[in-house]
Structure formats: structure tokens, C-alpha cells
Design a protein around this nucleic acid. Sequence first.
DNA 1: CAGTATCCCAAGCGATACTG
DNA 2: CAGTATCGCTTGGGATACTG
Lengths: 161, 161
Amino acid sequence: MPPVRSPAPDPVTRAPVPLDACALARAIDVIGDAWTLLILREALCGVERFDAMQADLGIPRSVLAARLARMVEQGLLERRTYRDPGRRGRPAYRLTEKGRGLVPALAALRQWSRTHLAHGPSLLSLVDHDGVCVETRLVRADGQAVEDLTAIRARAGPPVG
Amino acid sequence: MPPVRSPAPDPVTRAPVPLDACALARAIDVIGDAWTLLILREALCGVERFDAMQADLGIPRSVLAARLARMVEQGLLERRTYRDPGRRGRPAYRLTEKGRGLVPALAALRQWSRTHLAHGPSLLSLVDHDGVCVETRLVRADGQAVEDLTAIRARAGPPVG
DNA sequence: CAGTATCCCAAGCGATACTG
DNA sequence: CAGTATCGCTTGGGATACTG
């Protein structure tokens, strides 16, 4: 995972879209890592304890500790101390609003997986408060639904139309 | 990046959502890697040559070669030999339909970056054929727009409502 | 151009153990 | 339960150079 910065010492003749000026690249810098995404999944499932995550994911404890720390630092998770009445306080990792903001991306990934990977059924769904599944739609800024992905391009320059 | 499989030897008492039965986890297995996503970005920008990607991303050549091979194998890219009239044929990497299917996920990531990271302006936009920006919307299966991300949960079990 | 080949180093992993 | 500590091993990344 490369840190986000322009790659070259010489600034000339290339990189139509330098990495450090690209929103997508900056997002990738945060979540472009398998464990981070999987931890997000855990949090979305309501798993908020260190040992539970460690057991679910089979991740080395040291790595989990490091990832959680980074995610807290980045503001994706918040670490609060949860205290059952009469019990010792225990840390709990909860999604922040910023972390929840990634739900659409996760939903889109899940949909893609189901249509293009399809190794059997998914045992995990993203649902609204009343249990209804949610999914993403791609729409144009003018409100029209996008019907043909083939037409989509990335273009240099800030959002216009 | 862990291979997608259930973590534990013993199947008892835990892992409410085993990794190998989760569509999201399978997607993460494919794109849970910074370089892969960045290469996808390049492809979306229309960059299709080895050296151009290498220069844009500052990725080691060996790593790029390996990633491209894997992405072709996974069906995200296709390698076609492009021949200018009278010139030597050169390989070109193009997005497949499967690869394009990730556009909504990339769009969602980009939006998240702009609202929650916001280190300055984005120099890259995803646009439709006529230059209009596209974005993702989160909607319920019954068609209603999702207004409150806080209510979204991951739930075990296949999609129902 | 489009890659291989090489070499080195940092990071990840797995196991296990120890502390508060 | 929630970590930190240690350790050996393996993988992958980064830099550079070489080849068709």
C-alpha cells in the first residue's frame, strides 16, 4: 500500500491525475487494505470487542491492535469504554458517522460480488432498520439513472455538469 | 490480505458470519489491495499501457506486472494486442464488463472521500458519456431512499425483504 | 515499450506467552 | 477480556538493472 503522493521526482510530462489530488486515491489510502474493510464489516455486524473480531477474522492479535488504533485515529471507529452494571469496564469499538459513511461503498461492493463473483449465496445482508435490504444505484447529477456503465469515464477536472 | 476462508479449525460457538460465505468478504479478497484499486482508476481514465500506468502510479514494475496478470486472470481487465497501422503490436489493458461493474463502488468511495476526507478538491470525476457527473444513491429494496445511515446494519442471512 | 531478474528490506503472519 | 511482547518465517514491496 503506497502512501498517497505524487510518484515522481520530476514533475514533467505525465501523471494526468496525480495521486495526491484525487479523492478516490485518498479513499484508497484509507481503506485499500483487506483487514480494514473486514474490520468495518465486523463493526457493521455489531461486533465491537477485540477478542470477538480476532476470532471471527482469524487475524493476528498484533495486527488487529494496530489496525484498530489506526482506524480510531482516522475517525472510522471510536473506542468507548462500555461498562456493564457492576462489571469491569471494557473497550468497545463503534462505527463513527465517518465510518458509516462507507456503507454505500460496501453495499456496492457486495452487489458487485453477487453479480460478478457469485460463489454461492451471501450469508450477510445490509438492511435498514426494519430489515429491508439496501442497495446502491448509480445516477447522474441531473437525476437520471445510469443505464450503461460502459459510458462511464474518469475525467480530469473537478465535477462540473 | 488474508485468503477468504473460515478462520477457525473448530466450527463451534463463534463467527456469526464466516468469511467464505460472505459476498462482501469475497469482493474484498479481489479488490482489498491498494494497487488493484489504483490500477482500476488508471483503466477508468483510459490509461491502458504498462509504462503509462507505471509512471502514473510510481509502482514497481514487477509489482505492476503481477497485479495486471492477476487482474486479467480475475477478469477485471482484458489484455488485447493493439496494433497501430504499420507499427509493432503493443499490449493494451482494457476494463472488462466485470471490471466496469466496480464503477459504483469507486463512485461511492470517491463521494465518501469528498465528504469525509476533503483534503482539497478532487481533480478526477466520474462522468457519463456526455460529461455529466455520476454518483451513487443508497436505496431500499422497496425503492425508498435511505435517509439515515445510522439505521443500516449487516445481518446474517440471505437477502429477504 | 513491456516486461524479467535480482536483491534487500519492511511488514505481515502464526504461535505462544505474559500482564492488568 | 484486551491487549503487549517476542520470535522465526514467509511474503510482498521498492529500487535498479537488464532483455526482446
